[in-house]
Amino acid sequence: MADPMKIRANLVGDSTEVKVLMNHEMETGQRKDAQGKTIPAWFIQSVSATCNDKTVLSAQWGPAVSKNPFLSFKFKGGAKGDKVVITWVDSRGDKRTDEATIA
């Protein structure tokens, strides 16, 4: 199973600033291994973030997003102690969900 994400969620003024690091190879499908065989594409395709069951961001990615992806965004309406839940799904159908408490 994939390793956990690292999520930070901080209240700045009246917005919650979210910063996420994800563990993922983000293989493009363009690289070759030592034997010259193409390494198949394998990357995160969708990301969603919710706070109190409301979607605060959703994204679709291609393989051009860097390895071990970083994402940062801000939303209004979060309060200290609320949870931000992030889920990604990759091109193999693997899925990972983690959460952080707004500080």
């Binding site: 051009a64 970083f70 209004k76």
Partner: peptide, 29 residues
């Protein structure tokens, strides 16, 4: 979108009401 990448579109982000239209990430070129 990255003009000279093999495929141009790198990522799309849907911004619901209440989320600031500001995102930051990292891409390959």
């Amino acid at each position: 979108l990255i003009e000279k990448n093999p495929n141009m579109l790198a990522a799309t982000f849907d911004i619901p009401a209440g989320t600031e239209p500001t995102i930051s990430t990292r891409v390959k070129m």
